[in-house]
Amino acid sequence: MKLVAKTFHGLEQVLAGELEALGATNINVLKRAVSFDANKELLYRSNLQLRTAIRILQPLTTFKARNDEELYRAVKAYDWSPYLRDDQTLAIDPVVFSRFFTHSKYVALKVKDAICDQFRDKSGKRPSVDLQRPNLMINVHVAEDQFTLSMDSSGQPLNRRGYRTKEHPAPINEVLAAGMVMLSGYDGSQPFLDPMCGSGTIVMEATMIAARMAPNLKRKEFGFMRWNNYDESLWKKIFDEAQAQVRTPPQRINGSDMALSAIDVSRHSALDFGLKQYIDFEVAPFNEVLPKGKNGIAIMNPPYDERMKSKDIVMLYTQIGDQLKQRFSGWNAWVISSNFEALKVISLKPAERHTLFNGSLECRFQKFDLYEGTKKRRVRNAPDHHPSQS
């Protein structure tokens, strides 16, 4: 079967790599998505194991429509009986980018009516709507007049791992956090630090990677479990294999933040999720944080100036650069921010740049190689400076 895994802009290649590692074939990178060929086992594994996927969709039919009558006829003409019974429930999830259809809820209503009317015409009964736990969640993607209808095998978005038990003012999406950790090359063998960890999302994703823990191992239900062809014994086999792979990380994972309330949220999440024994949290401002160990990886998501005054943000990013240069020799540091001007005052040349989106904000995710001894060598080998060269 053909499947499509949805992701965020900038993480498509990371997701493609994950799929290749799982054994997927015919992998094609799309815009904010990756398509691939799979069987039922890989469908189940993808939902359990993929860190950078938001949803796994199974496309069913495509067609063109420019008005509600064409839409209704095309949906009703497709045979829905292999996937749904008249005594079951459905829900429609519309994603609409079209000049012909400007209201996503109206598109969802027409699709629902067409499917239900097909069953009513055959048996006199029709499926009902259940927005919380439907037997079949149908994703409707509309690009101008091109429709794609897919079964959503995930149900709730896959970023909802289950460890975010308390609210935090500005949490980073779990899929984005996992993608950042994977882009950094972290595999658990190095020390890891998030010195501005907030509610701990980046730390939690790094810990799961280090522990070889499937990101959705604690999740109780997926959409495919309510499908008519659900194979419970196959799922149990896949789940048991994933559970057996979990290990104790070879290095400690560290997270710190200046706000006690944020650290409290982080500790609570890690404790509830069974990962607290692998993580050291501390309350400390960034300028007091010392790296634990050598040649580690630090990832940070500092404020972007959404709520801070410009002079404060310049001071903060200058401080980030100073601290990295002075205390993190031998480490690789990664910083994500939508404030491109503030990133410049870090005053370090990025070794890598990636464009990612944190919500609607376009961000740069930049790597800084902090080589041991580099600064001294550069000073010693620097050419003499003459006023005429200024």
Rank of each mutant, 00 (worst) to 15 (best):
L11M: 10
L50S: 04
D264A: 14
N358F: 09
V345T: 11
A242E: 15
D37P: 00
L60D: 09
F100P: 01
M315E: 15
I336H: 02
I54A: 14
Y317E: 04
R247M: 13
A5V: 01
G200T: 02
Q13L: 00
N39L: 01
P383W: 09
F273M: 05
D152P: 01
A5D: 05
D384N: 12
S199D: 03
V283H: 05
L348R: 07
A351M: 02
P169M: 06
K166L: 13
V345Y: 03
S329F: 02
A108S: 15
E241G: 04
L60H: 03
A16V: 01
W235D: 04
V246Y: 06
L43A: 13
P134M: 09
A333S: 12
V314N: 04
D280F: 10
V203D: 14
V335Y: 03
Q245Y: 03
E221H: 15
M180E: 13
D37A: 07
K110M: 14
I320E: 06
F224C: 04
N159C: 08
Y106E: 06
V175S: 08
R378P: 00
A270G: 12
R51H: 07
L30H: 11
F286S: 01
S123G: 09
P215G: 07
E221N: 06
E341P: 01
D257E: 05
L324A: 05
D280R: 14
G188D: 12
K375Y: 09
P171S: 09
N47F: 06
